[in-house]
Amino acid sequence: MLAAGAFALRAPIAQVISAIQGPADFTEQEAATGTDTTVMIHSGDSGSDIAQTLVAEGVVKGYQAFYELLLAERPEPVFQPGAYELKTKMTAASALENLLDPASKLDRTVVVPEGTAAGVVLESIAEGTEIPLADLQAAAANVASFGLPAEATTLEGFLFPATYTFSPKASAQDAIKTLVDRQFAALDGAGVAPEKRWSTIVLASLIQREAGLRDDYYKVSRVFLNRLNPERWESGLLQSDATVAYGTGNTHLVTTTDAERNDAGNLFNTYVHPGLPVGPISNPGDLAIDAALHPADGPWLFFVTWNLDTGETTFSSTVQEHDAAVVKWQDWMRENR
């Protein structure tokens, strides 16, 4: 009875403690151990978007501490799009103060996270520099001028994710070429021959969008390669929601609807069209490229991320194992609505 009572009181007790202690925030002592980082704020980002970005980049400890502070600010803060020099493990108050300090904004600097779609990359370059977006889009349309593989019809997959600082005289062509050349350097450094660049980038872009934790990149790579093996997976269908979402234009999602998964008109729909997608679905970084080249050894044919907070993922080799993992994910979703 005592054990049952303690279990039942866990949530109310946690709520009381949270109310007393306030939202999660780094302490001054923790802040002293922070390291330099660069964060990108995009045009149209809301306060909620900015709070989520800061949490994702490890700048602040929790969403609520920063967002509540932001809501209480008068007059309402106005953030300029661009790159900001911050630190990890900042208190919410210090993070907000630095974002509002013009000195924190970096001139002509752009942050491109792994997995960003090409259209968003161009928007980021425009926001971080004085290069008009229209100029960047016009330059990007001339795919042949960047020396991409013959299969490429867009720049997708060949804009390496990193932090860049451009010269004041950089043109749209110069800026894009900087990212493309950096991706070529990454492929060369990984030992990818020019004739293998396309297939490597296509697979790496898929791994980049589907994998979460570092070690899982190599397992996700193996799952897709096992599904490309007719002896292991007769249909050859990769069944990746990320590819379907990309084909619908939802490049920021990895979830889809039944109707979207049944749409044969979507050439990126790997629930309908066998084999790798017709092109890259994101711009992958070094880790995804390495995983594409060096997949883990294993019999897995399925994977499901069952804990969306930690990114913990279950890899399975049978339908029965996968179904059990899906139930585990569904239970987690019910408990964390």
Rank of each mutant, 00 (worst) to 15 (best):
G115E: 12
A152N: 15
Q137E: 15
G147S: 11
L155Q: 02
L133R: 03
A118W: 13
T129K: 00
F184E: 13
I125T: 01
G119H: 03
I131S: 06
K105L: 14
T163D: 00
L187C: 09
G115V: 08
A140G: 09
V202H: 09
Q173N: 14
K177W: 08
A185N: 13
I176R: 04
T154K: 06
A140E: 06
L179P: 06
V180L: 06
V143I: 11
F158L: 06
E156R: 00
A152C: 13
L187W: 06
A117Y: 09
D174A: 04
P161R: 06
A134K: 12
A144N: 13
F158S: 01
A141D: 14
R182Y: 10
V202M: 12
E156M: 04
G119P: 02
T163F: 09
L179M: 15
L179K: 01
E114D: 13
G147T: 10
T163R: 03
S167N: 15
A170C: 12
G191L: 04
A126W: 03
A204W: 04
Q183I: 05
A103S: 15
D107F: 04
E130L: 11
R108Y: 02
A162T: 02
T163V: 13
A144G: 10
A193F: 09
A185C: 02
T178K: 14
T109M: 06
P113T: 05
F184A: 12
G128N: 04
D107V: 12
L122G: 00
L133S: 00
T116C: 08
L106H: 07
K177H: 14
P161K: 07
F184K: 15
I131E: 00
G119T: 06
T116I: 14
T116F: 11
A134R: 08
Q137V: 12
K196W: 01
F158W: 11
A134M: 02
Q173F: 13
E156P: 08
I125V: 09
E156W: 01
E195W: 10
A103P: 05
L133W: 01
T165V: 09
S124R: 15
K196Q: 15
E127I: 00
A162L: 06
Q173E: 14
T109W: 10
V112A: 03
T116Q: 14
L122R: 01
P194E: 12
F166I: 01
E123H: 08
T163Q: 03
T116A: 11
P102V: 02
A185I: 01
V192M: 06
S104M: 11
V121Q: 08
D107M: 05
D174C: 04
F160K: 00
P194V: 05
E130T: 14
L187Y: 11
P113C: 04
V120A: 15
V121W: 08
V111P: 07
G157F: 03
L179I: 09
P194F: 11
L159V: 05
E195I: 12
E195G: 08
V202P: 07
A186Y: 10
V112N: 04
Y164T: 02
